[in-house]
């Protein structure tokens, strides 16, 4: 009786471990932002249900022309629903690349404090600046942070 229980217990413990080993690993988060290595990256986490995101898109669309080729703007969409994401983009077109992150893996990797959150990454992908929320009154602050990041470019660290 006890031997059977022990065997059952061992089975209960071993099977999930085997399943975890057999599951294909998700693509590492770094892969998602790899195409942008070597540039200063402005990563904006947005979602269709986030109202400040709608307000921030017109400004985000101006960043590429304003700051030139050394900066690349990337939007990470944490919507779980593709339809919601597409509907938002129809009303608020994005002039920048959008990465879908329906599982929230990239958001979790950077442990974003709120929605929306913007990160500025350096050429090696290290985080230079984080800010949460979007207020039109604070656009100057956001642009100053971008300028500071662009000026750090070339600093040997």
């Amino acid at each position: 009786m006890l031997k059977r229980l022990t065997a059952l217990l061992l089975g209960v413990l071993i099977v999930p471990a085997l399943a975890a080993a057999a599951t294909p690993k998700p693509v590492p988060v770094d892969e998602a932002l790899k195409p942008y290595a070597g540039k200063i990256v402005y990563v904006d986490f947005w979602a269709s249900w986030c109202t400040p995101c709608a307000e921030s898109f017109p400004w985000l669309n101006t960043l590429q022309t304003k700051f030139g080729p050394k900066l690349v703007v990337v939007g990470v969409n944490v919507d779980e629903s593709d339809t919601a994401s597409a509907r938002f983009l129809k009303h608020h077109p994005a002039g920048f690349d959008v990465i879908r992150d329906a599982q929230g893996k990239i958001a979790e990797h950077y442990n974003i404090p709120g929605m929306p959150t913007s990160l500025i990454l350096d050429e090696q992908g290290r985080v230079l600046h984080v800010h949460s929320g979007f207020l039109p009154e604070r656009i100057n602050e956001y642009e100053a942070a971008i300028r500071a990041a662009l000026n750090h470019q070339g600093d040997s660290k």
Binding site: A47, S48, W49, D79, A84, D101, E108, G114, M115
Partner: peptide, 11 residues
Amino acid sequence: AKPWQRAALSR
């Protein structure tokens, strides 16, 4: 819910 999981809460 984590900040990026608040879709349902925002309805």
